[in-house]
């Protein structure tokens, strides 16, 4: 009898403890074994501007620029995001644009430290038609393999459209 009560008590305490731990965990949208991501903001624009080394650069596109602002966290060790892409409505994969290299706050240039949420942006260039249905694909390895890939469906309604986006040190 005592043993039964004890095991019930133990079960209850465990449940409470786990509930407490869960409540103190940040509500990340998506978790993988090695890292987690929360999409903060998605911007669409025709023109981006930034100033690497003090000289202003403007980049136009025939399609649209997509700027995805994220918060990332590593679970165990120091890591970087090696690959990021948008899967468009047609299923084609649009990798991060090198045309925006040198823009401030670009995520690939940052280390993720375990326990330290890090914010930054990814910049993609894609045809307008692809933006009706988009999935953000992030991976710890250059080409996604098994558990290190996270896919986030981007909600079309929450995408903000602007004529021109200036990418400064404080984000977009």
């Amino acid at each position: 009898m005592i043993r039964l009560l004890l095991s019930l008590l133990f079960g209850g305490v465990t449940a409470l403890l786990l509930a407490f731990l869960q409540s103190t965990t940040p509500s990340y949208a998506i978790l993988s074994r090695t890292f987690s991501v929360k999409v903060a903001k998605v911007l669409r624009t025709k023109t981006i501007a930034f100033a690497p080394y003090g000289k202003s650069i403007e980049r136009q596109t025939e399609g649209v620029w997509l700027i995805v602002s994220v918060e990332l966290q590593s679970n165990y060790d120091t890591m970087t995001i090696q690959a990021a892409a948008i899967e468009g409505a047609s299923g084609r994969l649009y990798r991060q644009s090198h045309r925006a290299d040198g823009a401030p706050r670009l995520m690939p240039s940052k280390d993720l430290q375990p326990g330290l949420p890090t914010t930054g942006i990814f910049i993609f260039e894609l045809p307008e038609g692809e933006t009706s249905d988009m999935t953000l694909v992030l991976s710890r390895q250059p080409s996604p393999q098994l558990d290190s890939e996270i896919r986030v469906k981007l909600d079309g309604a929450s995408v903000e459209t602007r004529d021109r986006v200036e990418i400064g040190a404080n984000g977009v």
């Binding site: 025939e62 047609s90 084609r92 649009y94 990798r95 644009s97 090198h98 045309r99 260039e125 045809p127």
Partner: peptide, 16 residues
């Protein structure tokens, strides 16, 4: 070189 940017060409995106 990418003429639009007067800069080196890296990736080309599908359908662009």
């Amino acid at each position: 070189y990418l003429v639009r940017d007067s800069d080196l060409l890296w990736d080309l995106q599908p359908m662009m």
